[in-house]
Design a protein around this nucleic acid. Structure first.
Length: 211
DNA sequence: TGATGGATTACA
DNA sequence: GTAATCCATCAA
């Protein structure tokens, strides 16, 4: 228990995640996320308010079995299954009951490159964790990791960056794949990073896209 | 109970 | 541009 140099940063990351979702989202950039023998540096995230007037949040309509972990303490993993085939990962933020979370949209693989390549089939390294579902696939994250305390010793672990990403290097824009609330620039990414996913406005399944 | 659309990705 | 493919949510 004499090692403060490892514990102090985790404590500080814990409190960062317990802060409001926008600063928490920014602070997640540059963090290392490890699972299944692969580590990625987080390069792109999106903030989702919980019950507080964000129609795009999975917690907007209140607590359900699927989003229950969002209502718990910050720093836990919220994973959900979508489009019948993809898993996406979020970090719970804020105070208990607030249900805000940050979607991890992209990262660059910093270790476990060969394992990640195997999980992702043939693709260029830049695309290994470029996109929320690709990131989960590269790390082998699925529903079994639901609720994991990311700052503990569980199957998915989050660690702060050695050097925080300078604020001047953080870019912001509207969230990807979200139907409404395009006025909110709640997507953050590391400016110039090649692993950031391309912005596409959400396309409705049927009918012409209207604004 | 049935319909609808989704915080996506791969491929034509 | 569209298929793939399961699930949460909503209307009736």
């Amino acid at each position: 228990m004499g090692d403060r140099t490892r514990r102090a940063p985790l404590t500080s990351l814990r409190s960062l995640l317990a802060s409001p979702v926008l600063p928490a989202a920014r602070g997640l950039l540059g963090c290392a996320l490890s699972a299944g023998g692969v580590t990625v540096r987080i390069t792109e995230v999106e903030a989702y308010a919980g019950t507080a007037g964000d129609p795009a949040s999975h917690a907007h309509r209140g607590r359900t079995p699927r989003n229950a972990v969002m209502f718990g303490p910050a720093g836990h993993l919220y994973v959900y299954f979508t489009y019948g085939m993809h898993w996406c990962a979020n970090v719970v933020t804020g105070v208990e009951g607030e249900a805000s979370a940050v979607l991890l949209r992209a990262g660059s693989v910093v270790s476990g490159l060969e394992v990640a390549r195997l999980r992702r089939r043939s693709t260029v390294d830049r695309d290994l964790a470029r996109g929320p579902a690709r990131l989960c696939q590269a790390l082998g994250i699925d529903g079994t990791a639901y609720g994991t305390d990311l700052l503990g010793t569980g199957p998915v672990q989050l660690r702060p960056p050695a050097v925080p990403v300078p604020d001047a290097q953080i870019a912001a824009g509207p969230r990807v794949g979200v139907t409404g609330a395009h006025d909110r620039e709640w997507r953050f990414w590391i400016a110039g990073d090649p692993t950031v996913s391309a912005y596409r406005r959400h396309v409705p399944r049927k009918g012409p896209g209207q604004l």
